[in-house]
């Protein structure tokens, strides 16, 4: 088992929480893991990405080689396309369709979405609306994580345990909200596959 995952978004959107959940789940299952994060200057509203690699055998590089990513998980539509050179020919894109517009020349959303829909495998989710339905728009990243779960090669229970561990200091209410959001993302993918 070996999965190369690119996590994409804008600084402050919570991609590191997604990474942490997958990481905790992988460690619980006794898998090897490497996860390269972006800290520092780019976190100030810039494009950020994380390379996440999980495997049943030892992993050499912290960085995924070009063309070897199995999945791009993105919480922002334009950012999902920034890492296409990393994606393998049969790779999967899972992304939110909700743009994060903090630049003047943000492209037309239609053009972005049509480009994503041209890719061989994708799921595009209205994560903000789905998260709102679950209770808070802040759980949009968990919607996206949920949509990715069937493709991570990890047990559903490990992901759930990871969410409980990650948010354990933030109260039961928030744990339940995040689990609900994760399940909503998962259901969407199951219904649309």
């Amino acid at each position: 088992m070996k999965k190369n995952i690119i996590l994409a978004g804008v600084g402050g959107q919570g991609i590191l929480s997604i990474a942490a959940c997958i990481g905790l789940a992988a460690i619980e299952e006794g898998l090897f893991l490497k996860q390269a994060e972006v800290h520092g200057m780019s976190q100030r509203g810039g494009a950020v990405q994380s390379h996440l690699r999980i495997s049943s055998t030892e992993i050499a590089s912290d960085l995924i080689p070009e063309g070897k990513a199995d999945i791009i998980i993105s919480v922002e539509p334009m950012e999902s396309l920034r890492y296409l050179p990393m994606l393998s020919p049969d790779g999967l894109i899972i992304t939110s369709i909700n743009p994060f517009v903090n630049i003047n020349n943000y492209p037309d959303l239609e053009i972005i979405l049509h480009e994503i829909w041209k890719q061989p495998r994708y799921f595009t989710l209205d994560a903000d609306a789905m998260a709102k339905e679950c209770g808070s728009v802040k759980a949009a990243n968990m919607i996206i994580l949920g949509a990715a779960t069937p493709f991570l090669g990890l047990k559903p229970q490990s992901i759930e345990n990871a969410i409980r561990t990650l948010f354990k200091n933030k109260g039961d209410e928030l744990i339940e909200l995040n689990l609900k959001a994760k399940n909503a993302g998962l259901n969407y993918v199951n219904e649309n596959s």
Binding site: G11, P65, G67, R82, L84, P85, N105, P107
Partner: peptide, 29 residues
Amino acid sequence: TPNIVAKALGIGFQAGKDIPGFLKNRPPR
């Protein structure tokens, strides 16, 4: 990067698709 080392060793690799031309940079602010 793994790819820079591959090139130095003459090992071929298949990169993914190019970044679409309409994409804009998102510098920190």
